[in-house]
Design a protein around this nucleic acid. Structure first.
Length: 270
DNA sequence: ACGGATGTTATTAA
DNA sequence: ATTAATAACATCCG
């Protein structure tokens, strides 16, 4: 489930548990999660070195390795780091970074949709995956102009990592709900004031989500404790809209994903 | 039993 | 050139 808030939380956990520690060696249990590298190359890169820094861009982490290159991490749908795992590891474990001291850093990914790769830095990751500006860094002008130029549906645009990096299916629904914009609205038709409102809701929703994730801790199940005023706390068909507008939550398909919204609150611009 | 699941990418079609 | 829909990746849950 990792979108920007979850990946930001992974970053914080990494800083707390793994940063500056020295790697002994790497064992890869499932080679298919490696992209463009292999177990031997990873050992050449990592063994005997320390983690120096970790950066996040959208849903990616970039871990800088002492005197060398970077480890690129994407968590897919079910990826996570485990910091207290001991052998025998759960079968969802795909790679293990054994440290010179203490517990290993364990990459678990049940559905194997995440990956590890080697990169020179955050800019290479940006280029390779054609990522736009991070959702917490995009400028107002860039966002507003992007909407004005785009005839795609707003929900698709918010999830388009090339336009803005870090927002996925769940938080795009919430941002649209908080801004009271229908997910099928045509981006270029949304009035200026509403575009501004959308822009403001992005950091608002992502920061609230980060706080929830941080407090809940366990998020692989996808059950955070979101505020009652959030659609996310009522994210199922026919639930009552939390605004007491009397509307019932609807589900449609948009961008190939289940999209929840309140037809009474969220205005359609098309 | 079978539909659905929070991500990304490729392909195809309009 | 854009945009939308679909499948594929692989596995588990309700």
């Amino acid at each position: 489930m990792p979108e920007l808030p979850e990946v930001e939380y992974y970053k914080a956990l990494f800083e707390e548990h793994a940063l500056y520690r020295r790697i002994d060696h790497v064992e890869v249990l499932e080679p298919t999660i490696l992209k463009g590298t292999d177990e031997k190359k990873l050992n050449d890169l990592l063994s005997g070195k320390r983690f120096e820094k970790v950066e996040r861009l959208g849903k990616y982490l970039c871990i800088h390795i002492q005197q060398g290159r970077c480890l690129e991490i994407h968590f897919g749908m079910t990826g996570e780091f485990l910091y207290n795992a001991v052998q025998p590891f759960p079968k969802s474990v795909r790679a293990v970074l054994f440290m010179e001291e203490g517990n290993p850093l364990v990459f678990s990914d049940r559905r194997k949709l995440g990956h590890l790769a080697v990169a020179s830095g955050i800019n290479e990751i940006r280029r390779k995956h054609r990522l736009g500006p991070d959702a917490l860094e995009i400028s107002k002008t860039q966002f507003i102009n992007g909407l004005a130029q785009c005839s795609a549906k707003i929900k698709s645009l918010l999830m388009n990592q090339s336009f803005i990096a870090g927002i996925g299916n769940v938080y795009s629904d919430e941002i649209l709900f908080q801004a009271k914009v229908h997910p099928a609205s045509v981006s270029s038709v949304i009035p200026g004031k509403k575009s501004e409102r959308l822009y403001e809701m992005i950091p608002e929703v992502l920061q609230v989500a980060f706080e929830c994730v941080r407090q809940t801790g366990d998020f692989v199940q996808g059950r955070h404790t979101f505020p009652e005023s959030y659609l996310l706390a009522h994210r199922k068909e026919n639930a009552s809209c939390p605004t007491s507008c009397g509307g019932k939550v609807e589900r449609i398909k948009s961008g190939g994903r289940s999209t929840y919204f309140c037809p009474a609150c969220q205005k359609l611009y098309s």
